[in-house]
Design a protein around this nucleic acid. Structure first.
Lengths: 211, 211
DNA sequence: AAAAAGATGCATCATATGATGGAAACAATT
DNA sequence: AATTGTTTCCATCATATGATGCATCTTTTT
């Protein structure tokens, strides 16, 4: 029996999928409490009762959104791990930064939702997804920071978190930071990738060489 | 004529100050829309009408909170700039990381509010403070990335943003990341500082040497 | 074509929320 | 003590919000 989320994915033109898409966008923009079911319904062009018919209550829809983006981003991570497998540290990092940044810039609601769900609280509590967290050690291994699950130290995981956070911050804060840097989108993307590589590659090669 | 914020600062035991303090804490935890005036009033132990008497409407109180933390953090930045003036790049960065992290760990609502106000939107718009943004180039100069205001490139500013973001992420996400790293507060602080220095110092010395 | 299942919107409800008027309590000034 | 100004809370309001019942329309199945 497919879940509502699976149904929505199966048919991207379905009402379920349209609602999910708008919900992603709006929750990413304004946060859980900043979005009303009416806002979502209005963006889709439907009545709120139709929204509730497809997704149940607001919390349930939000959970679906969180699950959706987590599945997606973990998919991207696995893709990257496949691509970089066997490559040098520099190449691994470079590819990881390029591919992940392209993805995050294309779907800015993803880093925004990850950031708020990691940093902030949602009042009625609940709603939390720890799969990204649990995945961090795997990334550490894939990046060559540690040989196996046993060998991943907190410091290694902290490195992975630092990289992830850097990408999330720059992509979700694009609008603010673009203004500070006084550049347009394309140049912003270039600068971000360059800066990330500039900062991370020296540290990483040093670290991996040390292992 | 002092503003309400100045009055609150002048007397930390005043009702204005107590409300501001609770508002800081709660807005940091749940975001603008996640906090009701009733929640704040309850935490202080007063009626909402007293809250409105002192601070006007919710948006006004939020603005005061944002202004308050921005003044505070810019103060810390200026302190750091004084301390590190004339020191080597390594020492400058080390001190900056230590002092700023200590401050942010002590007042976690500060990075939280900065992150959400940089990344997210608050629905009725308005409410924005760009002083931190405008201050970024000064930090670039203080850190030795550029000789003067004219010489600060977008890439330099991006470096400063990367450092700031890294500190904000690690401090505001402490609760989540502590769990991932499976460490307690004290060790978490140590790891964060170590990781930040490990990543940033090589990149920075390289960059400054290149100038 | 009829029947069944699915999807949609209108009207409506209960509660939450921001906000205010005005009375009462308190403090300062004369 | 009386007066004035400040602070606090109670009662209340208008609107926003999440949610649902039910009738209507649409699609699918028989």
């Amino acid at each position: 029996m497919p879940t509502p989320l699976e149904k929505a994915r199966k048919n991207p033109d379905s009402m379920k999928a349209k609602i999910l898409s708008s919900a992603r966008h709006l929750f990413g923009e304004y946060g859980y409490h900043g979005v009303t079911t009416r806002m979502i319904a209005k963006e889709v062009g439907i009545d709120i009762s139709t929204l509730h018919y497809h997704w149940g209550d607001k919390e349930n829809l939000y959970e679906a959104v969180i699950t959706d983006i987590h599945d997606e981003i973990i998919g991207v991570m696995l893709d990257i791990e496949k691509i970089v497998h066997g490559k040098s540290v520099e190449v691994r990092l470079e590819v990881a930064i390029d591919v992940m940044c392209d993805y995050l810039f294309a779907k800015p609601e993803v880093p925004k939702l990850i950031v708020v769900s990691s940093f902030g609280k949602t009042r009625p509590d609940g709603i939390r997804d720890d799969r990204l967290a649990e995945h961090a050690p795997n990334v550490a291994i894939a990046m060559g920071l540690a040989p196996d699950k046993k060998g991943v130290s907190p410091a290694d995981t902290a490195m992975v978190l630092a990289i992830s956070n850097a990408m999330y911050s720059f992509t979700s804060g694009e609008n603010t930071f673009k203004g500070i840097l006084k550049v347009e989108h394309d140049e912003y993307v270039t600068i971000v990738k360059k800066t990330l590589k500039f900062i991370l590659i020296p540290a990483f090669t040093q670290k991996v060489a040390h292992n």
